[in-house]
Write a protein that binds this DNA or RNA. Structure first.
Length: 559
RNA sequence: UGGGGUGUAGCCAAGCGGUCUAAGGCACCGGAUUCUGAUUCCGGCAUUCGGAGGUUCGAAUCCUCCCACCCCAGCCA
């Protein structure tokens, strides 16, 4: 799956060099999520990288669930992850689980013990932590560090056989408690957990740690390039140590890259879980969430997400990408293919006084201004229509060329109308505009050559289809929600991130709207039907607004 | 103050000692076209590469020192 020119980045350069040097027959990568949550757009980067390399180099990429901690994982998450990857347009060469290798991992552990490279530590977690030292002080050896091989072997066997409670013992690698890299200070390899595993059931009561599973899983699968994010940098020494001291079938290489950060949102699984649990969003697939399922429900396309990642690139530099780039990517993807349609979100009634009461006319118009092959649709014009509330101003600011008292505006694909009179409610708010239309101005014509700059969208009042429209905005109102006060990131939540508009007026054709189609509501934005939308109760989500230089400019001058 | 990293425009990012008075994208600012204030188009936007020294005929690219920021002390991944 490639979207355009082959990407260039430092990882692909390494791979190119490896191929040139004849180091590998085939390039093998893997995408290794833990099935304990939903995938988010940050994962897209890893997916795009790993699967993209597979596709471009004719290699393999396995989807491997790193399911080494039965306490927090479930099959439900695994299924959603598979669904999301497929939706993004990728297919794994094979599906695997770290748990598939539990027997092998156990053998590897025994191998280390037999070579005096691992020992069973019988201290408590607290004791082990205390002895680990600190960032600046070295650690101390455990009193159990020099247990004999036979004793270690039988203790480890007993751990496996369930003879101990959780936490009574752990298996540790015997490396160097003085190491400046804390990961090398006799890291824990196995811990006891009397907890059923979603795949292996009660077979095991000891489970390998990430460090003891990841590299070995890579080696078993023949992974050549094990790509992960920067926070595992310090683990590489341990990764390499294990590969070196174990009889593994291949020697994978770990390469780290920086993770994706987006402004105006949060990306950590922990925080996203909290937003869901606290009810700040409607679920993992709430269209405001940066999860794949949220973006999908919002209406983002797989192409736009892939293009987004491609344009961001892969480096080792910590980064924060602007939300605007993501928005630009979905607009670029949708602009050439989204059928245009007219929809009035905040209706204001307009009565065209000189248009006959009983008359209506059908206007056939193209569904795309630049691409006739997308087809045509029919609009109905009549005496009473709705226009957007914001397309009328009592006292228009400089440069406003929509409707105002005495002014003319063109109704898109229809006639020019002139505002004659405004009917107001008790509070003085306009509730109805009385206009005249110029019958000579059909089809974009102005026979007398007069310029009518403003063009607004409209919908025939009696032919409109009602719908609920949900307008989404950024989840947080500050660019960096975790910036100043890490504890109160919830205070930075944008109170207006969701606006539900009921009784919006859509052009009649939308009564048969295709649920798979992303539409452009002209002059407003791109919209996609929500998963809860039904033919008799339409719900549209705003994917993204159109670029809008007018409101920006007018806000400027009014400030 | 231990170790590992990273620093090129507001945000990304090419660049790998000479073709760099530094690609490209986003954002921004013009201007043209337009029945979407959209799209498209055209133009502008770093004499400078975290800083200071040094090596070299020549440095963003090599060396030294300094500064800033990120990650690491789970029986999480």
């Amino acid at each position: 799956m490639s979207d355009s020119p082959k990407p260039v980045n430092f990882i692909r350069q390494i791979i190119d060099d490896d191929i040139k040097a004849g180091r590998h027959q085939a390039i093998v990568t893997r995408f290794p999520p833990e099935p304990n949550g939903y995938l988010h757009i940050g994962h897209c980067k890893a997916i795009w990288l790993n699967f993209g390399i597979k596709d471009d180099y004719g290699g393999r990429c396995t989807l491997r669930f790193d399911d080494t901690n039965p306490l927090r994982e479930s099959q439900k998450y695994a299924s959603r992850i598979e669904e999301d990857i497929r939706w993004l347009g990728y297919e794994w060469s094979s599906l695997a689980h770290a748990s598939d290798y539990f027997d092998q991992f156990y053998e590897y552990a025994v191998h280390l013990i037999k070579n005096a490279l691992a020992y069973v530590d019988s201290q408590s977690g607290d004791e082990i932590r205390r002895q680990r030292g600190t960032l600046t002080e070295p650690g101390m050896n455990s009193p159990y560090r020099d247990r004999g091989i036979e004793e270690n072997l039988s203790l480890f066997q007993a751990m496996r056989d369930g003879e101990f409670e959780d936490g009574e013992h752990v298996l540790r690698a015997k490396i160097d408690m003085q190491a400046s890299n804390i990961n090398l200070r006799d890291p824990v390899l196995y811990r006891i957990r009397h907890h059923a595993h979603q795949r292996t059931g009660d077979k095991w009561c000891i489970y390998p740690m990430y460090d003891f599973a990841h590299g070995q899983g890579d080696a078993i699968e023949g992974v050549t390039h094990s790509l992960c994010t920067l926070e595992f940098e310090d683990h590489r020494a341990l990764y390499d140590w294990l590969i070196e001291h174990l009889p593994v079938p291949s020697t994978p290489r770990q390469i780290e890259f920086s993770r994706l950060n987006l402004n105006y949102t949060v990306m950590s699984k922990r925080l996203l879980t909290q937003l869901v649990d606290l009810g700040h969003v409607a679920g993992w697939d709430d269209p405001r969430m940066p999860t794949i399922s949220g973006l999908r429900r919002r209406g983002y396309t797989p192409e736009s997400l892939r293009n987004f990642i491609a344009s961001v690139g892969i480096t080792r530099k910590p980064n924060v990408i602007e939300m605007g780039l993501l928005e630009k990517c979905i607009r670029d993807d949708l602009d050439p293919k989204a059928p245009r349609v007219m929809a009035v979100l905040r209706p204001l009634k307009v009565v065209i006084e000189n248009y006959p009461e009983s008359e209506t006319e059908l206007i056939e118009v193209p569904s795309h201004p630049q691409r006739p092959e997308i087809g045509c649709r029919q609009l109905t014009f009549s005496r009473e229509i709705f226009i957007e509330r914001s397309d009328y101003e009592d006292d228009p600011p400089k440069g406003y060329f929509r409707l105002a008292p005495g002014r003319e505006v063109r109704l898109r694909h229809a006639y020019v109308i002139r505002c004659k009179e405004v009917v107001r409610d008790a509070r003085g708010e306009p509730v109805e505009i009385r206009c005249d239309y110029d019958p000579e101005t059909a089809g974009g014509q102005t026979p007398d050559g007069r310029k009518v700059k403003g063009i607004i969208h409209w919908v025939s009042a009696s032919h409109a289809v009602n719908a609920e429209v949900r307008l989404y905005d950024r989840l947080f109102s500050v660019a960096d929600p975790l910036g100043a006060r890490k504890h109160d990131y919830l205070d930075a939540l944008n109170p207006d991130s969701l606006q539900c508009l009921k009784d919006c007026k859509l052009e009649m054709g939308l009564g048969q709207a295709d649920p798979q189609t992303r539409y452009q509501f002209e002059r407003v934005g791109y919209f996609f039907q929500d998963s809860a939308s039904r033919q008799d109760a339409l719900v549209f989500n705003r994917i993204v607004s159109l670029r809008d230089t007018w409101t920006r400019k007018s806000q400027y001058s009014s400030n």
